[in-house]
C-alpha cells in the first residue's frame, strides 16, 4: 500500500484539519464528533441541508459544504457510515428553525444511522426530512438486495436541494425536490482498478491487467459482471444503455449529463467518455442542457468512471444554475 498517510486511524481527522485550514472562509470543522458546517451556520429561518457518509469519496460530502449547497457534512471513517450522535450534533449545529433535510445514500449502514439520528432529533424538537438516493442501475434484483445504491445522483441532489434551501423554500418542498431529482436520475460505473482501504492495507478486490468490473459501486462493491477491457466508446455504451433504458428517458427531454471520475482516472479520459455519452444521448433524442465532468464522488484511488443522467425540468435547471460557493463546486459568485 502506497499512500500519503501517517496512521490510518488519523487519516480522516488530519484531512478535516487540512480542510479547515484551507477553506476558513467557507466552512468550520467540529472535531468530536466530527462534522463540517458552512462558515455562517446556522442560517436563521433557512432550511438546512445535511449529508454524510463514509470518507473516501471526496470531494463528497465535505467539499460541498458552503453557500448554495450543504449546510453540514458528517464524514464517517473510510467507507463507513457516520454515527447517530455525530449526525445529531451536526443537525443541531445547522438547524436554523426551519428544519433539516438529511440526504442519505442508500446503504444499509447509512440508512440505519441516519434513521436513529432522525429519531433523536425529533426527540429534541427538530424536524427532519430524509431524501434517500438510490440511482445505481447496476444493482439488479433490488428486491433481493439492500436495494439500489446511492451514487452519482447524490451530487446533483445536494446541489439542487442546497440551492432550493438557499432560495428560501420550505422543508417539505426542498425534500420533495430532492426526491424528484433522485427519481429522475440514473447512474452506472465501471472500475479499471480497485482501491485500498487504509485500514485493510490491500486492495478490496482484484482485477486482472485486461479486466474491468462493469457496474462497480463506490466502495468497490461488485457490479453486474467482470469483462475484458474494451475501448472507451464501447465502455461508454455499456454504461449508457442500461441508464437510458431504466428511467426510461424520453426523446425530446432535457438532461444533465454528469461524467464522474472514481479517483485515479484523468480528466483527459473523462472527456473522451463525455464525448461518446453525449453522442449516445443525442442519438436518443435527448438534449444535453447541462453538464458536469470531473471527480466529484470518488472511491479513493480507484480508476474508472461513472455516468449519471438526470432528466431535468425547468426548476431543477434553475437551481442547478444558482450560485454555489464550496471547496469543490463554485460558480455564480
Amino acid at each position: 500500500m502506497k499512500k500519503l498517510l501517517n496512521a490510518p486511524s488519523d487519516l480522516v481527522k488530519e484531512a478535516l484539519a487540512g480542510m479547515a485550514l484551507a477553506h476558513p472562509g467557507l466552512l468550520r470543522v467540529h472535531v468530536d464528533p466530527a462534522f463540517l458546517v458552512r462558515a455562517d451556520a446556522p442560517v436563521r429561518g433557512k432550511v438546512a441541508v445535511l449529508s454524510g457518509g463514509g470518507s473516501g469519496h471526496e470531494p463528497l460530502h465535505g467539499g460541498f459544504v458552503g453557500r448554495g449547497m450543504l449546510d453540514a457534512a458528517c464524514p464517517g471513517a473510510v467507507f463507513t457510515s457516520p454515527t447517530p450522535d455525530q449526525i445529531l450534533e451536526a443537525t443541531r449545529a445547522v438547524d436554523g428553525g426551519a428544519g433539516v433535510v438529511h440526504i442519505v445514500k442508500n446503504y444499509t449502514g447509512d440508512v440505519m444511522n441516519f434513521e436513529m439520528a432522525g429519531e433523536l432529533a425529533r426527540d429534541l424538537g427538530i424536524t427532519t426530512e430524509t431524501v434517500l438516493v438510490n440511482d445505481d442501475v447496476a444493482v439488479e434484483n433490488s428486491l433481493y438486495t439492500a436495494g439500489r445504491r446511492g451514487v452519482g445522483a447524490t451530487v446533483l441532489v445536494e446541489k439542487i436541494c442546497g440551492a432550493a434551501a438557499e432560495a428560501g423554500r420550505a422543508l417539505a418542498d426542498v425534500a420533495a425536490l430532492g426526491r424528484r431529482v433522485n427519481e429522475h436520475g440514473r447512474s452506472m460505473g465501471i472500475a479499471l482498478s480497485p482501491c485500498t482501504v487504509p485500514h485493510a492495507g490491500k486492495p478490496s478486490f482484484e482485477l486482472g491487467p485486461d479486466e474491468m468490473e462493469v457496474g462497480i459501486g463506490i466502495h468497490g462493491e461488485p457490479g453486474r459482471r467482470r469483462a475484458k477491457l474494451e475501448p472507451a466508446d464501447r465502455i461508454t455504451e455499456m454504461l449508457m444503455h442500461p441508464i437510458l433504458d431504466d428511467l426510461p428517458f424520453q426523446a425530446g427531454k432535457d438532461v444533465l449529463l454528469f461524467v464522474n471520475g472514481l479517483g485515479a482516472t484523468p480528466l483527459l479520459e473523462l472527456y473522451v467518455v463525455f464525448r461518446k455519452a453525449h453522442e449516445i444521448a443525442a442519438a436518443r433524442g435527448l438534449r444535453v442542457v447541462r453538464s458536469l465532468v470531473g471527480p466529484y464522488i470518488t472511491s479513493l484511488e480507484m480508476a474508472g468512471v461513472s455516468i449519471t443522467l438526470l432528466q431535468v425540468d425547468e426548476e431543477m435547471v434553475r437551481y442547478w444554475d444558482a450560485p454555489v460557493h464550496t471547496a469543490a463546486l463554485r460558480w455564480g459568485v
Binding site: P33, G54, G76, A77, T80, S81, P82, T83, P84, D85, Q86, Y107, T108, G109, M112, N113, E115, M116
Partner: peptide
Amino acid sequence: LLSTVGGASGPLYG
C-alpha cells in the same frame, strides 16, 4: 458502540 462503530454494525450492536 452506537457512537464509535459506524457502518451497519454500530446501530445493530448498539
